[in-house]
Amino acid sequence: SGTGIVTGSYVAPKTVWLHAMKGKGLEISGTFARRSGATFMDLHFTNRALQVMSDFAIQFNRNSFGLAPAAPLQIPTPLAPNQSTEVSLPLNTIGSVMKMEPLNNLQVAVKNNIDVFYFSVVYPLHILFVEDGKMERQMFLATWKDIPNENEAQFQIRDCPPSADAVSNKLQASNIFTVARRTVEGQDMLYQSLKLTNGIWVLAELRMQPGSPSCTLSLRCRAPEVSQFIFQAYEMVLK
C-alpha cells in the first residue's frame, strides 16, 4: 500500500498442491495463514471432472509440529463440474509428532466420492510463531549468553526494507518481536525473539548495513535444526 501500515501475518499466494491430472479432476490450491492467534490452511477446490464430487474429508500424516485439522473439512457438496469453492480449515498443533524431512513437510490426504489423493506441502514456519513471543529483556540477555556460540547460525537476507522501523513493523505483524535496538557505527542492530507453538524460543540479531539492501541475520536457538526454516520465514516476511 505504501502507507507503511502492516496488518496481519504474511500470507503467501496460493499455489497448486494437487493437479487435476493427479486428482482425477480434483484440483486443490492452497496456502497457510495465521489470523487472530490461530493457524489456517486456506484452500481452493476446483472440480475439473465431468462428474459431481461429494463426501470430502482431509487428514494429515504425523508431522514435526503436530499440525492437525481442528475441524472437519466443510465443503458445500456436491461440487458440480467446473465449480470452485474456497474453504479455510482451522488447524491446531496437538496432533501426533514425528520429525519430517524437511522439518516443515506436511503429508496430506484428501478424499472424495471418487478416490483418496495424497500430496505433500511445505509450510512457512511463521504460521507457528505465537503472539506471546516477545521475551523479557533480561531473559533475552541471559538466554543469548547461555546458548553456545556453536548454536548460532548466520544468514544473509537480500532486499530488506530500507529502514529499521519498516523491518521491525513488518516482522512484528508476523509475531517476530523487537526486544531492543541499537545503532553501532551506523549499523542498526535489532535484537528479536519469537516463540514456536511447541514452546521453542528463537533469538535473533538482525544487522542492517547502511546504504545496503542486504542484512545479516544471526539466530540462536537451543534447537538449531529449526534455524534454516526461521531464516526462510524471515526472508518470506521481509520480501
Binding site: 529483556r137 533480561q138 540477555l141 543469548w144 541499537r182 535484537y191 540479531e205 544471526s218
Partner: peptide
C-alpha cells in the same frame, strides 16, 4: 526512569558483536 542496567547491557552486546 528506573535504570535497570539492561540498556547498557544491550549496548555492550551490540558493540561486542560489531567489534568482536
Amino acid at each position: 526512569e528506573l535504570d535497570d542496567g539492561l540498556d547498557e547491557a544491550f549496548s555492550r552486546l551490540a558493540e561486542s558483536r560489531t567489534n568482536p
